[in-house]
Design a protein around this nucleic acid. Structure first.
Lengths: 220, 220
DNA sequence: GTCTATATCGAGATAGAC
DNA sequence: GTCTATCTCGATATAGAC
């Protein structure tokens, strides 16, 4: 009768269900994000993810079905965070304050979720098969909106004349490079992981550069 | 007797040897760059590279031995191009001219060799196992040198006060994003590949942003 | 020097015991 | 619901014919 209501365990949303299920699904997702970030989709093995999660390999298939489904789940978890943090960019806002806050938020995200950033970067480099819908719908719409705001700032003479879309490309690139290409940065700065103070310094450098680049600070 | 002089074919430098060898090696390297860029090291298969090169699979192993050796050969071909183009940055040069030329050169490289850029990006994201020596030696030395030049510009009041190393991180990120994350850019701009005119526009936007960010242009 | 046919190995997926 | 043992397939690499 109500067969349509029944699903096999593998098809159930891993986020719902009992406490054990939720805990294990979270463990797996966290481990998967790390391993996919480090090795890419193809390079990552289910065995490696299972080991990182401290669970037997078969559990991953039990919870998520296939490797691809697990990967999609990881991406879904990341995307909203990746798109967010533009709410401060409004026509009424002070441009320097709004853009500064945006850059700081992106730098914080690179610091706190480098693996998430790397998963996205990897996906973009390799064709974004799973990401394209978000790019062409959500991201494009978001950038259209925020670009309109910046156009208003330009017309009001509150910011330098520039193409807002390319400004966003630069902002994303400058901030995400601290997550994605961390290794390059560490090699050049000649050491291990950046300390909090060093990262704070990096953030201030990027903010200052961006604000000057937008004509928002007195020349030094 | 002189066995030491003899090498198996697979061990011979593929760049040397007869005309056919050189032509085939070049075909393979070019195809490999494209496939590695699109799929990453693990995602790329020797069969796919062979098909792209129009040669039988066994030839790749005949010329380069292993998949890893082929990958190293691709990287080696790219690295010097990747490091180059900083020669304009000298104490005597005009900062705006030198930095503008550097940004334009990096933008040109993203336009003309996007696959090369993506191979490097992929390598950096995933641990840079093969690249680390270059990062810690050549790149670090290069950045040290050029940072000293920029420090001199700062002391002479010819450019805004900023941390030169973080400036380089930003310059690399802003320019390489047009190769590495091309898909994102196309989705936001709402179309297919950028035309020459669109790419020229992008280049001018980045150059203007960088020069303003360095305090090198009158405020707009 | 070149390519077909094959050996070998590792990874995703699953059956079935518990 | 959970995990061990196994199946199956695809990819690298190579042996050996031409």
């Amino acid at each position: 009768m109500n067969d349509a209501v029944h699903k096999t365990s593998a098809e159930v949303d891993p986020a719902s269900g009992g406490r054990i299920r939720q805990r294990n699904a979270a463990l797996i997702l966290s481990a998967a994000e790390k391993v996919f970030a480090a090795s890419g989709f193809n390079g990552a093995s289910m065995a490696e993810i299972a080991a990182a999660a401290g669970l037997p390999k078969a559990n991953l298939h039990y919870y998520f079905g296939t490797k691809e489904a697990l990967y999609r789940a990881v991406l879904t978890n990341i995307i909203e965070l990746w798109l967010g943090e533009t709410h401060g960019i409004t026509p009424e806002a002070d441009p320097a304050e709004a853009l500064g806050a945006y850059v700081r938020a992106k730098m914080r995200w690179s610091r706190e979720r480098p693996d998430a950033s790397r998963v996205i970067a990897n996906e973009l480099i390799h064709g974004a098969a799973f990401l394209t819908p978000y790019l062409e719908d959500d991201l494009r719409r978001l950038v259209d909106e925020k670009s309109a705001v910046i156009e208003q700032w330009i017309e009001a003479g509150r910011i330098a004349k520039l193409d807002p879309r390319h400004l966003f490309f630069s902002l994303w690139a400058m901030t995400q490079t601290y997550a994605d290409f961390d290794l390059q940065i560490r090699a050049v700065l000649g050491g291990g992981p950046l300390s909090d103070a060093e990262y704070e310094h990096a953030t201030e450098q990027v903010v200052a550069f961006v604000l000057r680049g937008c004509g928002l600070t007195p020349r030094g």
